[in-house]
Design a protein around this nucleic acid. Structure first.
Lengths: 204, 204, 204, 204
DNA sequence: AATGAATGAGCATTCATTCAT
DNA sequence: TATGAATGAATGCTCATTCAT
């Protein structure tokens, strides 16, 4: 972000100006590896290969493998937050109808275009079930979506819609075909109390 | 964990004669290990320890670790099917109101009493995302719940309610406290189209 | 050999009439496995698979794996003896010229048609270097060829020709192409003292 | 066999700093193990024991066991080349008579003093029959001896003498007693076309 | 600060052999 | 007798982590 990040000092001898840059590289590579091969596939060697980084760099900057895992998940939630922020700027929420349309799109793309991110999210949830120190991170991820919905929905309904989306995405990814847009739309319309008309449109 | 907690066995006579029983023992131990330590924690050694069984017995009856994983998941889905059958006998579905009550209970107990089984289910879903041969098994699991709901709901609504439950349970388990009964009930009532009154009851 | 080997008694219930038959099956399968995968590849499982035989049959009839190895090698030497006998009947040795022609053929086919048998022979030789109980068997194999040569050559020359053949076959099999007939012939002619004329024919 | 036979090392300071030296240590230990126990006996653990080295060191420096095998064989051929070079310096080839004397000595010592190296060579030949990537190495070994002979013999005769030596050594090692010097000498004299007189000297 | 080298611990799997039937 | 079941003992290999530089 800073304009002096990589100045014109081409002192080849120097390896790195920014000590945190290498750390970030490792974390990002770890994110990618978890998404691609799962938490169990996230070995130091796999991260090193993915990032084009020496193996020892993946252990030098982090006390243990668990530390790296935690930081990778934290960063993935940061990414999610940034994604939601961008969404709010590009498509600010106005009407309930728009909201449902947007959420429908979010569910479908979560299973297709953004599948890697969704997988990472579920990896986090599952990991959090067994590792207490990951639970705050997982809950922050959940809260992120929920809070955004609270812009237009009462808290409990926001929570319900958030859960519905989680379930729709999970079932959608497990299924052999991407989820059907109309079904998703109808379910979300219901959950958002968009009005009885929505139901008729899909014939249920 | 304790390999010697079955002292009443005729001991010493190590050899068993019932290979299917032994296979079942191994599979059940594997199920328990996956639920407790995750798929990555399901090593042959862990299964052997959990089942009080020699390590070689866990490899003798199954060609590969992946085979054992698959069979353990298949068996866990069978368990789920049996659970649903039992439920149908004990509490046959009659009215929509009863259904919603029952589902509410199912969600809450899935996060508490039956937490181990729920964890196993999500392990299966996540594993299926990366292992194609597990997807039919995961989809069968999803279909099981969905089909049962279709006794009382149109197909698309059944799918939506099924997804909602999956999301509620996941978020419920990740959260630090069990899910709130009333919120769950309200969300399910909405999704089942129980009537607008349900919403008023929770004050949203 | 005996005409009453498998009489007309089709008593299906009986598994085997001849208790030695199963043993022979195992030994023959072991021979084939050693030739194909080497001594280290000769596991009980490999033999069982090769012979279409239960694994336990490969251990039941032989005290140890080493026993089976020994019997397989013994049998392979028996095979070699039978092969030489047959050769003597079909192509009795008459003149030195004929002998050299025949030996040339033997060397070339040992690297091609009979390669499997040759490999087995070298497996035996190498194994005998480390396992004293196999040495008499290996030496019998060597003596077999030598003795036959002694029909037409003095003992020391017979030994030399036998060694030459062993070396030609070994180098021939290791090489990327089968050995050149003319070279082989020239070398054997020399070793058999066939006469200086043979040498001129190949330009040496 | 004795892992602690190098007490003079600075002990305790386990870490080495010279990776090439460590690699060489492993390869040399592997050579010794193959010569002593055969290729099938060359396990990582056996090499580690032989070299007084941690097991993981034997896998760290080589991608696979096959890699280590190949390097050990390559090194053994290098050793052979060095041996031939040394021989050429110490006893340059002059007359055919000297050559035959020297070769006779080579055959006899190959079965006695240098038996370990000879065994390694035959292990290589046999292994090369089944592992294509070892064939160039085995052929280089054969070419080494052949080329040296070509200093004094025409190519085809050199090849024949080389093969004869291979056979003599093999039969010599398999036999219960070292090969008889005179027989070996007579055979080599013949193969080198030393003159008819040689034959008379041994009474054949 | 950064990294190649090194290693103890552990893993999935194979195998010779033994046992119960 | 013959064989499926069972198992202790390896084996090749991977990995998180530590250390020397």
């Amino acid at each position: 972000m800073a304009p002096s990040d990589q100045p014109a000092t081409p002192s080849r001898t120097r390896r790195r100006r920014d000590p945190d840059a290498r750390k970030r590289e490792v974390i990002e590579a770890a994110e990618r590896v978890i998404a691609a091969r799962g938490l169990e596939g996230m070995t130091h060697r796999a991260v090193a290969e993915e990032g084009g980084i020496p193996v020892a760099s993946t252990t030098y900057h982090f006390a243990t493998r668990d530390d790296l895992i935690q930081l990778a998940f934290e960063r993935s939630v940061d990414d999610f937050a940034a994604y939601l922020d961008a969404l709010d700027h590009e498509q600010p929420l106005t009407t309930l109808t728009d909201l449902v349309d947007q959420l429908t799109d979010a569910v479908v793309t979560a299973c297709t275009t953004h599948r890697a991110r969704s997988v990472l999210q579920y990896e986090l949830f599952l990991a959090a079930l067994r590792r207490p120190h990951l639970r705050p991170i997982a809950n922050r991820d959940i809260a992120l979506g929920r809070t955004r919905l609270e812009q237009m929905l009462p808290p409990n309904r926001a929570a319900a819609v958030s859960a519905l989306m989680a379930g729709l995405i999970l079932h959608g990814m497990v299924g052999t075909t991407p989820p059907d847009r109309d079904h998703v739309h109808a379910a979300l319309a219901d959950a958002c109390h968009l009005g009885a008309a929505s139901d008729a449109s899909t014939g249920n």
